[in-house]
Design a binder for these strands. Structure first.
Length: 209
DNA sequence: CTTTGGATCGTCT
DNA sequence: GACGATCCAAAGG
């Protein structure tokens, strides 16, 4: 994973991010659902009306984390993409928990099942411990020379990794969730049939009867 | 199973 | 001063 992988537009980067791994210290999850947001072209984007202090990170170079606070209590995380100067980001909407499940459960007492841990944009931030303090961190910063992946110094850095799992050849695609503007754009992508999606994947769920 | 409303505050108008 | 890229518990069928 390198910064140039994220320099394309958000609608191209979003499905490409499926099956990549988001890591926070000892906790990790595989990305199974995302949404693209595209600044000036997208009335649903926080950056639609130009830069503000909050959205400054979105206008910066790709590969950084944009974290915002919403509904008075929730944090949500985005991967900034596109060229510097253009506001573009991909909202991470759901993860399949991979590592550090006990820590995730401790951070999310309301979770009744493994599926409840990361099946939503605010849930996964809670599970990984991502907050506004992580806004603007570099997700793809070069690891030091000789640093071995997995040789964790227990750092709490948020990182984006490619473990070799390719994105689905034919990702699920549909309209975005929870927005009021630009509801026609089909900029939500997911891993078909994954049990950790924020909304059940009706298309791939086995039909009853 | 689905629907509803409360929580709660940073951000922009 | 209004509202949101949400979640959850409680109530209803």
């Amino acid at each position: 994973m390198q910064r140039s992988d994220l320099a394309a537009g958000p609608v191209a980067v979003a499905p490409w991010l499926l099956n990549k791994v988001l890591v926070r210290g000892g906790r990790a999850g595989r990305i199974v659902e995302v949404e693209a947001y595209h600044g000036a072209n997208d009335a649903a984007s926080h950056a639609y009306r130009g830069p503000t202090p909050r959205t400054a990170v979105m206008f910066g170079p790709p590969g950084f984390l944009y974290v915002y606070f919403t509904y008075g209590m929730h944090w949500c995380a985005n991967v900034v993409c596109g060229p510097e100067g253009e506001a573009a980001a991909v909202l991470v909407r759901a993860l399949a928990p991979v590592r550090g499940l006990d820590e995730m459960r401790a951070a999310r007492p309301a979770a009744r099942s493994e599926r409840d841990l990361c099946s939503g944009p605010a849930k996964l931030c809670q599970a990984l411990g991502i907050t506004g303090a992580d806004n603007g961190v570099d997700l793809v910063a070069a690891t030091g020379r000789g640093a071995r992946p997995g040789a964790s110094d227990a750092s709490a850095a948020v990182r984006l990794l490619d473990d070799g799992t390719p994105p689905p050849r034919r990702p699920g695609r549909g309209t975005r969730i929870g927005i009021r503007e630009a509801t026609e754009k089909r900029w939500r992508f997911w891993v078909p049939g994954d049990p950790n999606l924020s909304t059940p994947d009706r298309a791939s769920r086995p039909s009853r009867r």
